[in-house]
Amino acid sequence: MLDDRARMEAAKKEKVEQILAEFQLQEEDLKKVMRRMQKEMDRGLRLETHEEASVKMLPTYVRSTPEGSEVGDFLSLDLGGTNFRVMLVKVGEGEEGQWSVKTKHQMYSIPEDAMTGTAEMLFDYISECISDFLDKHQMKHKKLPLGFTFSFPVRHEDIDKGILLNWTKGFKASGAEGNNVVGLLRDAIKRRGDFEMDVVAMVNDTVATMISCYYEDHQCEVGMIVGTGCNACYMEEMQNVELVEGDEGRMCVNTEWGAFGDSGELDEFLLEYDRLVDESSANPGQQLYEKLIGGKYMGELVRLVLLRLVDENLLFHGEASEQLRTRGAFETRFVSQVESDTGDRKQIYNILSTLGLRPSTTDCDIVRRACESVSTRAAHMCSAGLAGVINRMRESRSEDVMRITVGVDGSVYKLHPSFKERFHASVRRLTPSCEITFIESEEGSGRGAALVSAVACKKACMLGQ
């Protein structure tokens, strides 16, 4: 009897593995994704193909990295998701002549009506938060230079001027797309009239992360975010950046690689679950690469896999709870928690219980395998993109072996128990001629924006502006 049951459990697990095998990517698959990513990057950089390229390769006008001589107080704003952060950054000489960066910050959550109302409502709310922060720190009387981390696709015309191309991540505030974001912020500050600010720089969160990590390690020339969304930036040779005049030196390019796949480059790798996630998203047909990796989508992918296993009578005796059938019910943090389970399955059992399920031991094991399959594919897909960037940098610099540091931020990278190990191992397999160091950014977005502002202020002083 026991043997029969054991055989049935083994057969069930084997069927589960057959279904989950769809998520496995072979090294040849990853090399294919990497080569296609490089081709799209090239198209994004070139003037004649930029418009139709899915990977936009947006110039950021960040050319210099901090040298350690900029000092002063800077205000930093960070808008990239449902939370908005205001930070005071003091850049100065530390002990023994070292450079020191001290920060104080406060988080504000953005109400739904500000995210989806008008641009005026959104930026009025942001300036209200700045006003509140300055009151708390008794700094209303000071006109501070301000660095703005704005983590949406922007076409820069200068370091302090950028046109919002399109909202992502659930934002829909009308009247912002096609307009200068810094102008919208300046107008809102003017409307309030109770404080003055000098907006000197606007950067993407990947750029802010790279600059913040450069402060720790001067070989950091790539910034990457794996959180709600997924994106990367890197220092490109100016001669390859056709959208900006000049051939000397390097400029940081914001790849906006989340949109890779929007022209069909990933079609052969998309599964039924991916198509369902895409169809029910706020932007169907867009940001397809990001939807395979980002935390906004990972939990939902797992939920759809679990429903398939229920329908195949391989999980929960073929019956799903009402909660499990509800879109968004299986949160991405559950994926991390399930994979963090120590082996007694308590954590998995508790999560499934909150979803109205009474799982068996085998159910718990199957749910864990589903989570591992989805998150491992995410790590491997992400590795193909980064390997594409790094191999490109090595080739354009004609280096036999390139040493490089990548600064990384984002909740999936930082909080998932195995993502970074799987990701690092896969990147290294795909970049055999590179020695890569990964560092995690601390308060990256805010500190990085302030350091970019410090560079901009120093330049302005040198130019006598």
Results as ranks from 00 to 15, higher is better:
26 Q>D: 13
160 D>C: 01
224 M>I: 07
172 K>D: 02
334 F>G: 15
453 S>P: 06
89 V>H: 02
400 D>E: 10
342 T>E: 09
105 H>L: 06
389 V>Q: 02
131 S>T: 03
105 H>Q: 10
189 I>G: 05
176 A>Q: 00
189 I>A: 00
299 G>F: 03
163 I>W: 02
191 R>F: 01
208 A>W: 05
426 S>N: 09
301 L>Q: 15
39 K>V: 12
152 F>P: 01
174 S>K: 05
338 V>M: 10
7 R>T: 07
420 K>S: 11
348 I>G: 08
374 V>T: 04
261 G>P: 03
10 A>H: 09
18 Q>S: 07
259 A>V: 01
225 I>Y: 05
242 E>F: 06
65 T>I: 11
158 D>K: 04
94 G>I: 13
37 M>F: 05
222 V>I: 12
71 V>P: 15
297 Y>V: 02
188 A>P: 05
422 R>V: 10
146 L>D: 00
413 Y>F: 04
166 N>F: 13
432 P>C: 13
231 N>S: 06
391 N>L: 12
262 D>Y: 12
331 E>T: 14
102 K>C: 05
58 L>I: 05
255 T>R: 01
306 L>A: 13
353 S>Y: 07
273 Y>K: 06
462 M>F: 15
372 E>H: 13
116 T>L: 08
392 R>F: 04
118 T>R: 04
107 M>N: 07
463 L>F: 12
78 D>V: 03
356 G>S: 13
293 I>K: 05
153 P>E: 05
95 E>S: 12
223 G>I: 03
275 R>L: 09
279 E>C: 14
41 M>H: 02
76 S>F: 03
330 F>Q: 05
184 L>N: 01
144 L>C: 06
142 K>P: 01
362 T>Q: 11
390 I>F: 12
64 S>R: 14
97 G>Y: 08
354 T>G: 12
230 C>L: 07
178 G>S: 05
219 Q>C: 12
133 F>K: 04
335 V>S: 12
376 T>P: 06
182 V>S: 05
275 R>Y: 14
185 L>C: 03
358 R>P: 04
168 T>P: 04
194 D>M: 05
281 S>P: 05
354 T>E: 12
232 A>T: 12
149 T>G: 09
348 I>L: 12
138 Q>E: 02
95 E>L: 10
91 V>D: 02
175 G>Y: 00
157 E>M: 09
300 E>G: 09
64 S>Y: 15
244 V>C: 09
123 F>L: 01
53 A>F: 05
153 P>C: 01
452 V>S: 09
303 R>F: 00
204 N>S: 10
204 N>W: 00
371 C>W: 00
415 L>N: 05
202 M>V: 04
298 M>W: 03
319 E>R: 15
368 R>Q: 11
176 A>D: 15
25 L>K: 11
153 P>Y: 01
134 L>Y: 00
345 R>F: 12
206 T>Q: 01
41 M>V: 05
413 Y>E: 03
313 N>P: 08
364 C>P: 11
363 D>E: 14
127 S>V: 14
238 M>F: 06
405 T>M: 09
217 D>S: 15
213 C>V: 04
325 R>L: 09
338 V>C: 07
36 R>Q: 10
31 K>T: 13
64 S>W: 15
232 A>P: 05
186 R>Q: 00
25 L>I: 10
175 G>Q: 03
12 K>T: 13
344 D>H: 08
318 G>E: 13
141 H>G: 12
398 S>G: 14
76 S>Y: 03
448 G>Y: 02
423 F>K: 07
115 M>S: 07
123 F>G: 03
455 V>C: 15
365 D>R: 12
14 E>Q: 11
258 G>S: 11
365 D>W: 12
136 K>R: 10
323 Q>M: 04
223 G>K: 02
283 N>Q: 11
165 L>S: 04
92 G>Y: 07
381 M>T: 05
100 S>H: 08
234 Y>R: 02
245 E>I: 09
102 K>R: 08
41 M>C: 09
318 G>C: 07
320 A>G: 15
437 T>G: 08
56 K>I: 04
458 K>H: 13
456 A>W: 14
129 C>L: 01
100 S>T: 08
237 E>Q: 12
308 R>W: 10
398 S>R: 11
207 V>T: 09
